[in-house]
Design a binder for these strands. Structure first.
Lengths: 96, 96
DNA sequence: TAATTTTGGTTTATATTATAAACTACTTTA
DNA sequence: TAAAGTAGTTTATAATATAAACCAAAATTA
Protein backbone atom coordinates (compact mmCIF):
# COMPACT_ATOMS: atom_id res chain seq x y z
CA UNK A 1 0.00 0.00 0.00
CA UNK A 2 2.46 2.65 1.13
CA UNK A 3 5.52 2.59 -1.05
CA UNK A 4 8.95 3.44 0.31
CA UNK A 5 9.75 7.13 -0.03
CA UNK A 6 13.28 7.58 -1.35
CA UNK A 7 15.15 8.87 1.70
CA UNK A 8 17.42 10.96 -0.47
CA UNK A 9 14.45 12.96 -1.67
CA UNK A 10 12.35 12.79 1.48
CA UNK A 11 14.22 15.68 3.02
CA UNK A 12 12.87 19.19 2.91
CA UNK A 13 15.97 20.86 1.57
CA UNK A 14 16.98 18.16 -0.91
CA UNK A 15 13.44 17.97 -2.23
CA UNK A 16 13.41 21.74 -2.72
CA UNK A 17 16.74 21.61 -4.54
CA UNK A 18 15.61 18.86 -6.89
CA UNK A 19 12.27 20.55 -7.39
CA UNK A 20 14.08 23.64 -8.60
CA UNK A 21 16.55 21.73 -10.73
CA UNK A 22 13.97 19.68 -12.62
CA UNK A 23 12.62 22.94 -13.99
CA UNK A 24 15.66 25.06 -14.58
CA UNK A 25 18.10 22.30 -15.56
CA UNK A 26 21.02 24.36 -14.32
CA UNK A 27 21.44 26.59 -11.30
CA UNK A 28 24.13 28.31 -9.29
CA UNK A 29 24.83 27.62 -5.64
CA UNK A 30 23.81 31.14 -4.72
CA UNK A 31 20.55 30.86 -6.65
CA UNK A 32 19.65 27.68 -4.80
CA UNK A 33 20.65 29.23 -1.52
CA UNK A 34 18.35 32.19 -2.07
CA UNK A 35 15.39 30.17 -3.30
CA UNK A 36 15.56 27.61 -0.52
CA UNK A 37 16.59 29.94 2.30
CA UNK A 38 19.15 27.37 3.36
CA UNK A 39 22.39 28.18 5.07
CA UNK A 40 25.45 27.73 2.86
CA UNK A 41 26.76 24.89 5.01
CA UNK A 42 23.56 22.92 4.89
CA UNK A 43 23.22 23.50 1.16
CA UNK A 44 26.77 22.36 0.55
CA UNK A 45 26.21 19.12 2.45
CA UNK A 46 22.90 18.33 0.78
CA UNK A 47 24.23 19.05 -2.71
CA UNK A 48 27.04 16.63 -2.03
CA UNK A 49 24.54 13.95 -1.01
CA UNK A 50 22.50 14.49 -4.15
CA UNK A 51 25.67 14.19 -6.16
CA UNK A 52 26.72 11.01 -4.34
CA UNK A 53 23.30 9.58 -5.16
CA UNK A 54 23.83 10.41 -8.82
CA UNK A 55 20.85 12.75 -8.87
CA UNK A 56 22.77 15.89 -9.79
CA UNK A 57 26.04 16.92 -11.35
CA UNK A 58 28.19 19.62 -9.85
CA UNK A 59 30.57 21.71 -11.88
CA UNK A 60 32.96 24.14 -10.27
CA UNK A 61 34.15 27.10 -12.26
CA UNK A 62 35.22 30.65 -11.75
CA UNK A 63 33.11 33.60 -12.72
CA UNK A 64 34.32 37.15 -12.38
CA UNK A 65 37.18 35.93 -10.23
CA UNK A 66 34.84 34.19 -7.78
CA UNK A 67 34.28 30.47 -7.44
CA UNK A 68 31.00 29.34 -8.96
CA UNK A 69 29.20 26.08 -8.38
CA UNK A 70 26.78 24.99 -11.08
CA UNK A 71 24.27 22.23 -10.45
CA UNK A 72 22.36 20.20 -12.99
CA UNK A 73 19.88 17.40 -12.55
CA UNK A 74 20.72 14.03 -14.12
CA UNK A 75 18.31 11.64 -15.86
CA UNK A 76 18.51 9.51 -12.71
CA UNK A 77 17.53 12.52 -10.65
CA UNK A 78 14.53 13.22 -12.83
CA UNK A 79 13.50 9.59 -12.62
CA UNK A 80 13.85 9.58 -8.83
CA UNK A 81 11.82 12.76 -8.51
CA UNK A 82 9.02 11.32 -10.65
CA UNK A 83 8.95 8.14 -8.62
CA UNK A 84 8.92 10.10 -5.38
CA UNK A 85 6.06 12.17 -6.73
CA UNK A 86 4.05 9.08 -7.61
CA UNK A 87 4.74 7.37 -4.32
CA UNK A 88 3.89 10.23 -2.02
CA UNK A 89 0.45 10.58 -3.64
CA UNK A 90 -0.59 7.47 -1.77
CA UNK A 91 0.23 9.20 1.51
CA UNK A 92 -1.58 12.39 0.57
CA UNK A 93 -4.86 11.18 -0.82
CA UNK A 94 -7.56 10.03 1.56
CA UNK A 95 -7.90 6.27 1.89
CA UNK A 96 -11.27 4.72 1.28
CA UNK B 1 8.41 30.24 -1.97
CA UNK B 2 8.98 26.91 -0.25
CA UNK B 3 6.99 26.73 2.95
CA UNK B 4 8.24 24.87 5.99
CA UNK B 5 7.12 21.25 6.03
CA UNK B 6 5.86 20.31 9.49
CA UNK B 7 8.63 18.02 10.77
CA UNK B 8 6.13 15.97 12.75
CA UNK B 9 4.41 14.98 9.52
CA UNK B 10 7.43 14.95 7.24
CA UNK B 11 8.35 11.47 8.32
CA UNK B 12 7.41 8.47 6.27
CA UNK B 13 5.85 6.47 9.06
CA UNK B 14 4.09 9.32 10.83
CA UNK B 15 2.69 10.57 7.53
CA UNK B 16 1.37 7.10 6.76
CA UNK B 17 -0.24 6.85 10.19
CA UNK B 18 -1.94 10.21 9.88
CA UNK B 19 -2.94 9.46 6.30
CA UNK B 20 -4.73 6.36 7.52
CA UNK B 21 -6.28 8.06 10.51
CA UNK B 22 -7.76 11.00 8.60
CA UNK B 23 -9.89 8.48 6.73
CA UNK B 24 -10.82 5.88 9.29
CA UNK B 25 -11.06 8.16 12.32
CA UNK B 26 -10.21 5.30 14.62
CA UNK B 27 -7.74 2.44 14.30
CA UNK B 28 -6.06 -0.22 16.38
CA UNK B 29 -2.34 -0.46 16.89
CA UNK B 30 -2.25 -3.78 15.08
CA UNK B 31 -4.18 -2.39 12.13
CA UNK B 32 -1.72 0.47 11.76
CA UNK B 33 1.18 -1.93 12.11
CA UNK B 34 -0.12 -4.10 9.29
CA UNK B 35 -0.97 -1.26 6.94
CA UNK B 36 2.31 0.56 7.42
CA UNK B 37 4.59 -2.47 7.68
CA UNK B 38 6.28 -0.82 10.62
CA UNK B 39 7.89 -2.66 13.46
CA UNK B 40 5.96 -2.48 16.71
CA UNK B 41 8.73 -0.51 18.39
CA UNK B 42 8.93 2.10 15.71
CA UNK B 43 5.17 2.40 15.58
CA UNK B 44 4.96 2.82 19.33
CA UNK B 45 7.50 5.63 19.31
CA UNK B 46 5.93 7.47 16.39
CA UNK B 47 2.42 7.22 17.84
CA UNK B 48 3.74 8.76 21.02
CA UNK B 49 5.23 11.65 19.06
CA UNK B 50 1.97 12.25 17.24
CA UNK B 51 0.21 12.23 20.57
CA UNK B 52 2.72 14.66 22.11
CA UNK B 53 2.12 16.97 19.16
CA UNK B 54 -1.62 16.81 19.82
CA UNK B 55 -2.30 15.25 16.42
CA UNK B 56 -3.82 12.02 17.72
CA UNK B 57 -5.46 10.63 20.82
CA UNK B 58 -4.52 7.27 22.22
CA UNK B 59 -6.86 5.14 24.26
CA UNK B 60 -5.70 1.96 25.95
CA UNK B 61 -8.22 -0.74 26.65
CA UNK B 62 -8.44 -4.47 26.90
CA UNK B 63 -10.10 -6.61 24.30
CA UNK B 64 -10.47 -10.35 24.71
CA UNK B 65 -8.00 -10.23 27.56
CA UNK B 66 -5.35 -8.55 25.44
CA UNK B 67 -4.23 -4.94 25.61
CA UNK B 68 -5.67 -2.83 22.83
CA UNK B 69 -4.48 0.57 21.69
CA UNK B 70 -6.97 2.71 19.81
CA UNK B 71 -5.83 5.80 17.91
CA UNK B 72 -7.93 8.68 16.69
CA UNK B 73 -6.97 11.80 14.84
CA UNK B 74 -7.71 15.14 16.49
CA UNK B 75 -8.96 18.33 14.79
CA UNK B 76 -5.42 19.66 15.18
CA UNK B 77 -4.13 16.58 13.41
CA UNK B 78 -6.52 17.05 10.51
CA UNK B 79 -5.54 20.69 10.26
CA UNK B 80 -1.85 19.84 10.28
CA UNK B 81 -2.31 17.21 7.60
CA UNK B 82 -4.18 19.64 5.37
CA UNK B 83 -1.51 22.26 5.80
CA UNK B 84 1.22 19.73 5.07
CA UNK B 85 -0.67 18.68 1.96
CA UNK B 86 -0.91 22.24 0.74
CA UNK B 87 2.69 23.05 1.47
CA UNK B 88 4.27 20.04 -0.17
CA UNK B 89 2.47 20.80 -3.45
CA UNK B 90 4.94 23.60 -3.97
CA UNK B 91 7.78 21.09 -3.83
CA UNK B 92 6.09 18.64 -6.17
CA UNK B 93 4.91 20.82 -8.99
CA UNK B 94 7.36 22.04 -11.60
CA UNK B 95 8.49 25.61 -11.17
CA UNK B 96 8.12 28.00 -14.07
C1' DT C 1 49.28 49.12 1.61
C1' DA C 2 47.54 47.05 5.54
C1' DA C 3 43.50 45.90 7.79
C1' DT C 4 38.57 44.73 7.19
C1' DT C 5 34.78 43.02 4.91
C1' DT C 6 32.57 40.29 1.46
C1' DT C 7 31.95 36.34 -1.51
C1' DG C 8 31.45 31.60 -2.09
C1' DG C 9 31.86 28.12 -0.40
C1' DT C 10 33.63 23.43 2.92
C1' DT C 11 34.34 20.96 7.19
C1' DT C 12 33.12 19.67 11.68
C1' DA C 13 30.45 19.28 15.78
C1' DT C 14 26.06 18.65 17.76
C1' DA C 15 21.35 17.90 18.30
C1' DT C 16 17.52 15.45 16.47
C1' DT C 17 15.41 11.32 14.21
C1' DA C 18 14.47 6.94 12.86
C1' DT C 19 14.89 2.37 13.71
C1' DA C 20 15.87 -2.17 15.39
C1' DA C 21 16.81 -4.89 19.18
C1' DA C 22 15.85 -6.07 23.61
C1' DC C 23 12.65 -6.24 27.00
C1' DT C 24 7.98 -6.49 29.70
C1' DA C 25 3.71 -8.40 30.91
C1' DC C 26 0.29 -11.18 30.16
C1' DT C 27 -2.34 -15.14 27.59
C1' DT C 28 -2.92 -19.28 25.20
C1' DT C 29 -1.66 -23.80 23.89
C1' DA C 30 0.62 -28.27 24.27
C1' DT D 1 4.17 -26.00 33.67
C1' DA D 2 6.95 -24.98 29.90
C1' DA D 3 6.88 -22.95 25.47
C1' DA D 4 5.02 -19.99 22.21
C1' DG D 5 2.21 -16.10 20.97
C1' DT D 6 0.09 -11.32 21.54
C1' DA D 7 0.51 -6.55 22.22
C1' DG D 8 2.89 -3.58 23.10
C1' DT D 9 7.21 -0.25 25.57
C1' DT D 10 11.92 1.04 26.46
C1' DT D 11 16.56 1.60 25.21
C1' DA D 12 20.59 1.71 22.40
C1' DT D 13 22.52 2.88 18.11
C1' DA D 14 22.99 4.47 13.58
C1' DA D 15 21.69 7.88 10.36
C1' DT D 16 20.21 12.82 9.42
C1' DA D 17 19.81 17.50 9.46
C1' DT D 18 21.64 21.62 10.70
C1' DA D 19 24.27 25.40 12.48
C1' DA D 20 28.55 27.01 13.73
C1' DA D 21 33.12 27.44 12.75
C1' DC D 22 36.32 27.70 9.42
C1' DC D 23 38.98 28.70 4.88
C1' DA D 24 40.78 31.13 0.79
C1' DA D 25 40.59 34.58 -2.32
C1' DA D 26 38.76 39.14 -3.81
C1' DA D 27 37.13 43.58 -2.94
C1' DT D 28 36.75 47.53 -0.16
C1' DT D 29 38.15 51.06 3.07
C1' DA D 30 41.10 53.81 5.81
Amino acid sequence: MFKELDPILHSQLRLAIVSLLVSVKEAEFTFLKEKTNATAGNLSVQLQKLKDAGYIEIEKKFKDNYPQTICKITPQGIQAFETYFKNIQEYLKPKK
